[in-house]
């Protein structure tokens, strides 16, 4: 009888320990999976940029682009990684600047088709028009075209780097009906693109 009771208590104790550890596992998973994102969303995702600030995108001078930012822009740090992507905002306008590391020099011809597919991954509602030639104020040639979604309109501009081993893609998006003045501010950033490796 005593042995039975001891065994029964041992089994009950094991169940209790198991449930305690299960609670610890669930708590750790919930804390990490929900805790960090909640804390992140509780902190403002905006860092103002001074007017005239220069932002550099890319890893190292040979593979970087530099843009000059005007008044009223801020960076969204949670979506920004200076080696790969900047997300800037000014009111309702968003400027998404992407560094594209091309697999080889011959891929420049396919960047527009690639961008169309990337936009489709982001949102299947986006449509990208046909590209036309584009030149930055520093004389770098690229291509640009209109992008449209159910609620957003904008432009996509892609400028290959001097080595043609990388390119900078810039997506301007704003709600339909956004004033031309604000959109023009975004386009002034886009057209300011220069490449430090080329020295101009």
């Amino acid at each position: 009888m005593v042995a039975d009771e001891t065994a029964r208590r041992a089994v009950a104790g094991a169940a209790k320990v198991r449930l305690r550890w299960l609670a610890i596992v669930v708590a750790i998973m919930a804390l990490l999976t929900a805790g960090w994102p909640l804390l992140n969303s509780a902190i403002a995702n905006r860092q103002p940029l001074p007017s005239g600030a220069r932002i550099t995108i890319g890893a190292g001078p040979a593979s970087s682009g530099v843009l000059r930012v005007g008044h009223g822009w801020y960076v969204q740090p949670a979506q920004t990684n200076p080696t790969q992507q900047y997300v800037l905002r000014n009111g309702a306008v968003e400027l998404d600047i992407r560094h594209v590391a091309l697999v080889d020099r011959h891929q420049v011809a396919f960047v527009w088709r690639g961008m169309r597919q990337i936009l489709s991954v982001i949102d299947p509602g986006f449509g990208l028009g046909e590209p036309v030639s584009y030149t930055t104020v520093h004389g770098w040639p690229g291509i640009t075209g209109a992008v449209s979604g159910p609620a957003l309109l904008g432009t996509v501009t892609i400028v290959p780097g001097p080595s043609r081993e990388f390119a900078i893609g810039m997506i301007v998006l704003a709600p339909r009906g956004t004033s031309r003045t604000v959109l023009a501010a975004a386009h002034r950033i886009v057209i300011s693109l220069m490449f430090p490796s080329a020295g101009r």
Partner: peptide, 21 residues
């Protein structure tokens, strides 16, 4: 995927995007 996104966002906001990169 979710946990890293949250914590990396916090690093970028708290310590700057260059440090976070």
């Amino acid at each position: 995927l979710l946990a890293n996104r949250g914590l990396i966002g916090l690093w970028a906001k708290g310590a700057g995007t260059r440090f976070a990169a």
